[in-house]
Design a protein around this nucleic acid. Structure first.
Lengths: 160, 160
DNA sequence: AAATACTCGTTTCATCTGCAACGATTAACT
DNA sequence: AGTTAATCGTTGCAGATGAAACGAGTATTT
């Protein structure tokens, strides 16, 4: 498709349209990014406003709650967080009393993150909210759920 | 599931596990976010290394290429970019000679972004790469493609 | 027409981000 | 053992980010 309004009179001159069409709205990376932002937005906002917890902190909390005493490195690998981001999230959670940072006895380079009782209580609240949220989402995507999961698996596993 | 290693001896004391399990790995907002990052990463890196173009700039380019003379506001609404981000992306694209910014004649608050010939040439290259990328992705998610699209539509359209 | 309210794009500011460098610790090698 | 290499978490830094404020322009109201 060639646009007749083109004025290709040299470098630096204004053009209104190129000769091909590309729809961002049907470009998968774009669509996935926007959809993911939308999915996270509601929950993230609530966590921030009601508990002062960021997404990074939420991920740290989940992993510590699930795996017990973990290192920064482990969080970095398991929940897709840059190690500096994981470190800062953990420090902030420690500062706000939701977890403690100890030195790992057998390897003193490692840190051992553990929830405090306050952290456990927080997690109980956050999990309840997250599970509610998840069930609303499940309802929304119910007809496509299994294909969606498989597509996500394919994206995560394959190299491209 | 109750973890017997709990030492709930008061506030601020270390805990190893809470009494419920929550799997981040099966939490849709998390999965979508990570998958979206993965989908964008390859292309974004290439655009950045080979052309010095950010994701925001890429979105601006696509919309200007598709819609001709557009305002910042229009970009903001159409391609899911904060207006300050759109403004900065446009300024950088102007500084590097890929587009020009004019004042809209009928409403002088508005800006009119138009590709330069250099911008059109860039877009031709970027689009080719993007379409190649898209076709590899399509291949990857082929079995789930239509369900995936419907799921994304549902996420974008519904309120939850 | 004057006053007020709104809109647009930019910029300011405080915060966030990712990368690289760093000190501390442990592992590997000779 | 002593040297070198690797790993861990933190931090310094430069650039990115989002929200709010701002000036310039336009719409609306009186």
């Amino acid at each position: 498709m060639l646009d007749i309004t083109l004025t290709d009179s040299g470098y630096g001159q204004p053009m209104t349209k190129p000769d091909t069409d590309f729809e961002l709205g049907s470009f998968l990376p774009y669509r996935m990014t926007v959809a993911a932002e939308r999915l996270s937005a509601g929950l993230a906002k609530r966590y921030r406003n009601e508990f002062g917890i960021s997404v990074a902190e939420w991920r740290v909390l989940v992993h510590v709650a699930d795996a017990g005493a973990v290192s920064i490195r482990e969080i970095h690998q398991r929940v897709h967080l840059e190690k500096s981001k994981a470190s800062r999230a953990a420090s902030h959670l420690e500062a706000t009393g939701f977890l403690i940072k100890e030195v790992n006895g057998s390897d003193r380079r490692l840190v051992a993150l553990k929830l405090t009782a306050k952290g456990v209580a927080l997690m109980r609240e956050l999990q309840t909210i997250a599970l509610d949220y998840q069930s609303r989402l499940d309802e929304l995507v119910a007809p496509y759920k299994s294909a969606l999961e498989k597509a996500l698996d394919a994206i995560m596993e394959d190299d491209f």
